[in-house]
């Protein structure tokens, strides 16, 4: 069992400051569940699939939710969604898009590809903390994930 095995939230975010603020917000509302921060889509997919640097990770341990940014280098958020939805073993992991963009085309396309929810990152910090708290409180404690 490695450090990666009890990860409950996979945070996929290329912006270091946004990642730090999200983690702080989660800590602030005492959601001490394990959060793993993947810096881009490629790392996120390797994490989920237990490949490359994550080959020792237990494949049976899936996060309760993936918080996914859209605009990222190397592999775009939408491509990550497509990849996860294409495989039977990863298709059912809940995905909540968390991105700067509130552009209608991003919202529509994300839902069309099968995300569970879509949250636009607020600029004001109180709203940001509140949004992260609301995400955590629902997806970690209320929602039931498929087996």
């Amino acid at each position: 069992m490695t450090d990666y095995d009890d990860v409950e939230i996979l945070l996929v975010e290329d912006n270091r400051q946004d990642a730090e603020m999200t983690t702080r917000a989660l800590k602030k509302c005492k959601i001490v569940n394990k959060v793993y921060w993947a810096k881009d889509g490629v790392e996120a997919l390797n994490f989920i699939r237990c490949t490359e640097e994550f080959e020792n990770r237990n494949k049976n341990c899936t996060p309760k939710v993936i918080l996914l940014d859209l605009k990222m280098p190397r592999l775009d958020g939408l491509d990550v969604i497509r990849a996860l939805k294409a495989e039977e073993s990863t298709r059912k992991i809940p995905i909540v898009v968390m991105t700067s963009s509130n552009q209608e085309r991003d919202v529509t396309e994300s839902y069309r590809l099968g995300v569970n929810g879509y949250v636009t990152k607020p600029v004001q910090s109180t709203a940001f903390v509140e949004a992260v708290a609301n995400i955590g409180m629902f997806w970690l404690f209320v929602n039931s994930t498929p087996v």
């Binding site: 919202v107 839902y111 929810g117 949004a131 629902f138 404690f141 929602n143 994930t145």
Partner: peptide, 29 residues
């Protein structure tokens, strides 16, 4: 999403609050 309804009223109220806060406040459609 899938939520199992708790039996106790206080627990149910808390669940509904969390459902509302995410789906009606944070989530975009």
């Amino acid at each position: 999403a899938y939520v199992i309804k708790p039996i106790g009223f206080t627990e149910l109220a808390e669940v509904i609050a969390r459902v509302s806060r995410f789906w009606l406040l944070a989530n975009q459609v």
